[in-house]
């Protein structure tokens, strides 16, 4: 008996139900969803386009959406790898014809862009609509989603510059996806009872004589993860090794504001020198160096959120920061963000 029928039986016995598949077996628990509720949450789009809402958008309009809402992170042509791997690039006209990305077959792909991987255009529509822009997910309208997707597809030369993508022609676009024939589900890792593709035997004695060390940790990688001695216990059978210029690093204490920046989530969007989503903190210090009121005005803007001072991306209100942390952070930013 399957678990399900077992459960159904138990439920039937418990509640004297008939055992037919009526919904709501546990008295007083759960309720029917209203159609509006289902519509609000059921936003997924399948490869056969089930779930795709009607609408359309042109490449031209998509370019406007892209520049306003996407380019800051993904680059004007979807080429940026500042925030994430590039979206566009690495596919050819030939790939569009064959549906197989040649760079994989030749093995000369320096990196894998989204368009080189994705086989199903529905995936992009669904994902952009549910999750992008990254910092304001679910804010794109249906038509803007079509438009911005049309723009991405045009950058990949899958659709022409005068194209208007819609629910009516998206199935034709699917026939031009560069990696549409590049996926396989013939493997043993989908079904628990699937057949493993790699086989070893549990030999116990004199198993091999030709053991070689094929790869060892390069020195730079040993040091790249900080001081390993501080990542292990101070008692027990082992100690961590001293790496990453441990002694030099220990002598110079990091500035406590660096920890505050992490703790309050600022480092997700700000670097000290580099722009991430928001400006690098040293740029901020430069801009306000002669502004006497900067300390209070910046505190207020961080607390309430701000926009329009540095670019198209807004900073959401940082209400989680305590007054003490905020004061310390702003002082530190205006003093040029010393690192120790």
């Amino acid at each position: 008996m399957s678990r399900l029928t077992e459960l159904a039986l138990v439920a039937a016995l418990m509640f004297g139900a008939t055992g037919s598949h009526a919904a709501g077996r546990y008295e007083g628990i759960g309720r029917a969803a209203t159609p509006a509720e289902v519509k609000a949450w059921d936003i997924d789009v399948r490869p056969d386009f089930k779930g795709l809402p009607a609408g359309s958008g042109s490449v031209d309009h998509g370019m406007e959406v892209w520049e306003a809402k996407c380019a800051s992170c993904h680059g004007t042509f979807g080429e940026s790898n500042e925030v994430f791997t590039p979206i566009v690039g690495g596919t050819t006209k030939e790939d569009i014809e064959t549906g197989r990305v040649g760079a994989y077959i030749r093995g000369d792909a320096p990196q894998r862009t989204t368009l080189m991987k994705v086989a199903t255009v529905s995936t992009l529509w669904d994902y952009i609509h549910r999750a992008m822009p990254w910092n304001a997910p679910k804010s794109l309208s249906v038509d803007d989603t079509y438009a911005v997707l049309a723009y991405i597809l045009n950058l990949g030369e899958i659709v022409p510059a005068d194209f208007v993508l819609s629910d009516r022609n998206i199935a034709d676009v699917q026939k031009r996806m560069p990696n549409r024939n590049g996926m396989t589900t013939r493997h043993g890792l989908w079904d628990v009872k699937g057949k493993p593709d790699v086989k070893n035997v549990a030999c116990m004695k004199d198993c091999r004589t030709d053991i070689t060390i094929g790869s060892s940790l390069p020195d730079y990688a040993r040091d790249a993860h900080g001081d390993l001695s501080a990542q292990n216990r101070t008692v027990g059978p082992v100690r961590g090794q001293h790496t990453g210029n441990a002694t030099a690093a220990a002598a110079i204490k990091p500035h406590p504001a660096l920890e505050l920046m992490k703790k309050n989530g600022c480092s997700g969007c700000h670097g000290i020198d580099s722009k991430v989503l928001g400006p690098g903190f040293r740029e901020v210090a430069k801009r306000y160096k002669d502004d006497k009121g900067a300390e209070s005005s910046l505190s207020a803007r961080i607390r309430k959120g701000s926009s329009g001072n540095w670019g198209d991306v807004a900073m959401p209100a940082q209400s989680q920061v305590s007054d003490a942390d905020l004061g310390a952070l702003v002082k530190w930013i205006l003093s040029g963000s010393p690192e120790n």
Partner: peptide, 30 residues
Amino acid sequence: DQPWATKDEAVHYIDLLPDGTHRQYTSIQE
């Protein structure tokens, strides 16, 4: 009644093989 091919099963969490195909829906941790 069909798989969804969402972003994290059509762009990521796909395994590139030597012949240039990707295995999709590889899920089990062996």
